[in-house]
Structure formats: C-alpha cells, structure tokens
C-alpha cells in the first residue's frame, strides 16, 4: 500500500506497524517523534499502531539549529 512519508510517496507492506516501519528505515524508536495524520503517536504505541493506505507519516528528530 501507499503512504506519504516525510513528504514523499512510499510503498509499504499492508498492515505494517510504526515499529516495523522504523525498523525498515533503520531508525531507533528513541530519539524520534512520529506523527500520523496530524496525531503524535506516543512511543509506547509504536508496536500496536497499524498504518492505513494514504496515511501521512512524519518522522522527526533533533537536527542542527540555534
């Protein structure tokens, strides 16, 4: 299925969880924030939240800034 991830279209497996998506990208659950369709998903729910087709996902972390 298709989702939008950090502004780009991405093909992912049906029924993928947030946790599996992070694993696939190679990101640790610590040190990121995940937003799904304008909702912030708390870290303790990464394993249970299942993505739906057309979801807009933002994965953020701390980057350089003043």
């Amino acid at each position: 299925m298709e989702i939008r991830l950090n502004g780009k279209v991405r093909e992912v497996a049906d029924g993928i969880t947030v946790r599996r998506l992070l694993d696939q990208i190679g990101l640790q659950p610590l040190r990121v924030a995940v937003q799904r369709n304008l909702d912030i998903i708390k870290r303790d729910r990464y394993e249970e939240v299942v993505l739906q087709p057309g979801d807009t996902i933002e994965i953020l972390s701390f980057m350089a800034g003043g």
């Binding site: 991830l5 950090n6 502004g7 780009k8 990208i25 990101l27 990121v32 924030a33 933002e58 994965i59 953020l60 972390s61 701390f62 980057m63 350089a64 800034g65 003043g66």
Partner: peptide, 9 residues
Amino acid sequence: TVAVRRVNL
C-alpha cells in the same frame, strides 16, 4: 539548542 526536523531517511 537543537531543531526539530524530518529525519534523513
């Protein structure tokens, strides 16, 4: 200080 921005995929 740090900023909050999209991770580099």
